[in-house]
């Protein structure tokens, strides 16, 4: 995930050059433009780190949808960020199967070692955001943690400082 641009910056078009080509490559895969919405939103988030109001308008434009409709879809899915997050986004699974194996202590360790303070907040240096996430689908490898696109299994509180060193 690339660094998020700030919320106050003017929107610069996302679908230009290579990203536009990726968007165009989606069209033959679906019978409607509307169906390209989820993959198009992924392209925005990969490029910008989050999905701003400006990006919502641009996506609506390229897919012939209304901005209100696009916003309705964006806010339904938890993985799309509607505000900037830290350079590294950390998701700790704390649903029951991991919870009984000590997942809440893992989440606490991430909060402590990143300096994030509380769940959902970004560390003062802008490096990390930590959230608790519902079931990551790797319950036999408790506790799984998703950092950006890296899926890390069997995380214990003791492993947290070492893991964080890999994310500058």
């Amino acid at each position: 995930m690339s660094a998020g641009h700030s919320a106050t910056e003017a929107h610069q078009p996302v679908f230009v050059g290579e990203v536009r080509q990726k968007l165009d490559a989606l069209f033959p895969k679906y019978p409607t433009r509307q169906a390209c919405l989820l993959p198009a939103l992924w392209l925005v988030q990969e490029a910008r780190g989050w999905i701003s109001e400006g990006a919502i308008h641009e996506v609506a434009e390229v897919l012939s949808l209304t901005p209100a409709y696009v916003k309705g879809v964006v806010t339904f899915y938890t993985m799309y960020h509607t505000h900037p997050v830290g350079r590294h986004f950390i998701q700790v699974c704390t649903t029951s199967p991991c919870n009984i194996c000590g997942a809440e202590d893992v989440a606490k360790a991430f909060l402590q070692h990143t300096g994030c303070g509380e769940l959902g907040a970004t560390s003062p240096d802008g490096r990390f955001t930590v959230i608790e996430v519902e079931c990551l689908g790797a319950c036999g490898f408790a506790t799984p943690v998703l950092i950006d696109d890296d899926f890390i299994e069997n995380v214990t509180p003791e492993r947290v400082p070492g893991i964080l060193q890999g994310y500058k």
Partner: peptide, 9 residues
């Protein structure tokens, strides 16, 4: 076609 979800049980 592989269609990727975006976080919704």
């Amino acid at each position: 076609v592989v269609h990727r979800g975006a976080g919704a049980y």
